[in-house]
Design a protein around this nucleic acid. Structure first.
Lengths: 115, 115
DNA sequence: CCGAACTATATTGTCATGCAAGGTAGCTGT
DNA sequence: ACAGCTACCTTGCATGACAATATAGTTCGG
């Protein structure tokens, strides 16, 4: 089915892009995992589940891009806040540059005039 | 190394996006594999190798998105030209819509004002 | 006429990742 | 007690980019 192809393709398209979004979301403020899911899912095209965010955050921590702080919550278990390290901030800059390049390239191909 | 992380991430980011570019490149005219590589590699951020294009084209053909025509060449082996089927053209439209949605979503996250 | 260089197609294997599914645990209201 | 929400985390699968590799035809210099 077309629907299958499209759903599958959409998954593939998001690879890597979600990492960019998560890092970008942490640029302005610290956030905890569950919150990031809600935050990004509010945006069309960036809907994601918890099984997606936690592996990403673990990777980020392992690679020294973020650090964590535990904080009590009155609405459930303690929240683990993630905040960017200088290294994470620097890498985010490079990723944004690479993203802009690819985005512009795609824009060029998809709007190409007929030859 | 940061360089490793970035290189790896760039690879992941391109997943799916390259398929979009290939379909889009075929929108205006038929092309053969080697030619598509040269064509897209001329654009920064869309550089790709032959080991990438042929699996994509095979998938497209298997899924009925493109059809092929063989044509003699005076500069090497016969060229296998790929052209969009109506189904491929229709799917390209849907993919472009999904792409626009994700692109705009990322734009929103990465340019978010400080709270 | 031999080999280097280029065109062109194709396959195999590795690796990272998105995501569904499942599991644990704390707090709130009935 | 129990349902329902918040919040965290792990396992397993499917997918696709890319490097490496193989094959074969053409062209051109020595």
């Amino acid at each position: 089915m077309d629907a299958d192809f499209l759903a599958n393709w959409t998954t593939q398209m998001r690879k890597g892009l979600l990492e960019l979004c998560v890092l970008a979301a942490l640029k302005a403020r610290r956030m905890y995992g569950y919150d990031i899911v809600k935050h990004l899912s509010a945006i069309d095209g960036l809907v994601m589940g918890e099984g997606t965010i936690y592996p990403i955050l673990s990777r980020f921590k392992k690679d020294g891009l973020v650090e964590t702080t535990l904080a009590e919550s009155s609405e459930g278990p303690a929240r683990k806040y993630y905040q960017l390290t200088p290294r994470g901030r620097q890498l985010l800059g490079k990723m944004l540059a690479a993203w802009a390049e690819v985005r512009d390239g795609i824009e060029a191909v998809t709007t190409e005039p007929l030859l």
